[in-house]
Structures are given as C-alpha cells and as structure tokens.
Computed example of a mutant assay.
Amino acid sequence: MSKFINWKSDWFSGNFHLFVDGLQKGAITFGMWTSNAESMFEDKNYQFASEGFWQSRTKVIDKKTNEVLAIITYDSWKSKALISLNTGEQYEWKSTGVWKSQWTVSNYKDEHIMYTSSSNSGAISSDTDNKLLIIAGLFIKQVYNKRAVFVIACIVPIITTTTLRHH
C-alpha cells in the first residue's frame, strides 16, 4: 500500500508539518539549540532524544509507554544513518540526490520510503505504514541540516579572519 505525504518546514525553527490529502496529520517540533524533537503523526507520538559527542546517536521513544523503539546511529563522514528498531530490524537512511534534495529510508527488501524536497517543502512516498520510519526520515534530514549550518557558522569566521589578516 503506497502512502503519499506532503510536508512543509519552518525555515528558522526547522519544525515540520505533515499533510495527508491536504489535511495536517502530524508535526515534528525541534528543541531550539539541540537535535532533540517531539513528533506526532496520526495516532503515534514519539520523542527523539539525541546523545553522545556531536549527538552521534538518537533514541526514539514512544511517548505513551516510554519504551525505546529505535536507536538512530549517524555516520559522521557520510550522509548516512542506521535506524535499528527494538525488533532487530535495521533500516538505512541515505541521501540520494546530488544537492541533498532526495533521500531514502530502506531495509532493501520490502520497505522503502522516498523523500524529496524543494526549499522548505517536499513529498514522501512510502510503501510502508510504519509511522516511526516515516518520521525518522525527516528527523535525520534535519539533524544533518543543523550540522551543516553549525559547520558553516564555525568555518566562515575563520576564513574571513584569515583572509583579512593577509591583506
């Protein structure tokens, strides 16, 4: 069964709003200075709690039961992440577009979710109804976006200072 979802994000906060058939069915709300978030999509509510240096892991927690449903592990050198469900299943998140405007979550067997983005909106096409995986794909994208902004914010002043000293 294919599921089609549209999303929009707030540029400044990075929060997402998810729409099915034009109706808002979910949201992801990020903490201001962290990669932690809370989400709801249809009947599911999740908390994303990042931990470790450079926030290298994120626990996905069911807000109703406080059960850890998944662990997301990020590859710091590539735009990849591994979603390990508490059932033992594993899914890979990876960027597939040249401009980081497309990405997928897949187990490379029977579950595959494709994401596309343009500016602050996009679409999701999923052949699974697993809401955790659908939400996790957007969450991971935003984690990598925040990292890129952080790196740029750190590097630009260094380059500017170095350039000005040599003139």
Rank of each mutant, 00 (worst) to 15 (best):
R57C: 06
S125N: 14
S39M: 03
K64P: 09
T161P: 02
I134N: 02
L23R: 09
S13G: 05
V151P: 01
S84Q: 15
W11V: 03
L85F: 07
G122F: 01
T104D: 04
N107E: 11
S50W: 04
T116S: 09
I155Q: 11
W33Q: 12
F16Q: 06
T34Y: 10
P157Y: 11
S35Y: 05
T163I: 14
Q55F: 11
I72L: 03
Q55T: 11
N120D: 14
S35M: 12
I113H: 03
T58F: 02
L69S: 05
Q47S: 15
E38T: 09
V156A: 13
H17Q: 12
Y74L: 08
Q90F: 04
E38Y: 05
G88R: 01
A153H: 13
P157E: 06
G137C: 06
L132I: 01
N107P: 13
S2G: 04
M40Q: 10
V60S: 07
S126Y: 10
S35Q: 14
F12H: 06
W54E: 08
G137V: 05
G52H: 11
A37H: 01
I159Y: 13
Q142C: 01
V60M: 08
F150W: 13
K44A: 13
L138I: 02
A136Q: 04
G14K: 01
I159W: 12
D129G: 14
F41Q: 00
P157G: 05
N107F: 13
G97P: 11
I159H: 04
S76I: 08
S119V: 13
F16T: 06
F53C: 03
K63A: 14
W93F: 13
T163H: 12
I71V: 15
P157W: 09
T58L: 06
R147I: 07
A153D: 15
T73K: 07
D129Q: 14
W11E: 01
E51N: 15
L132F: 07
I155P: 10
A37R: 02
Y91A: 01
D110L: 06
S95D: 05
A37I: 04
A153N: 15
A27E: 12
S2Q: 13
T34G: 09
S56T: 07
G14P: 08
M1W: 11
I140D: 03
S13F: 04
A148F: 10
V151W: 08
S35T: 15
M1A: 09
F4I: 00
L132D: 05
Q55H: 11
G137N: 05
L133K: 02
D62V: 12
F139A: 03
D127P: 07
N45R: 15
A70P: 10
Y46F: 15
G26L: 02
T128A: 03
F12I: 09
Q47F: 10
G52R: 05
D21K: 04
Q47I: 13
S79Q: 09
L138R: 02
K3I: 01
T163S: 15
M32R: 12
W99E: 05
S125E: 15
T128Y: 07
L132T: 00
A37V: 00
G14L: 04
S2F: 10
L132Q: 04
N15D: 15
S117V: 03
T161H: 07
Q55G: 04
K64H: 13
T58W: 07
Y144G: 00
G137D: 09
I140Q: 00
A136K: 06
T128K: 00
G22L: 05
T116F: 02
K146H: 10
S119D: 15
C154W: 14
W33K: 10
W99Q: 03
D10K: 01
I5Q: 00
Q55K: 08
L82H: 07
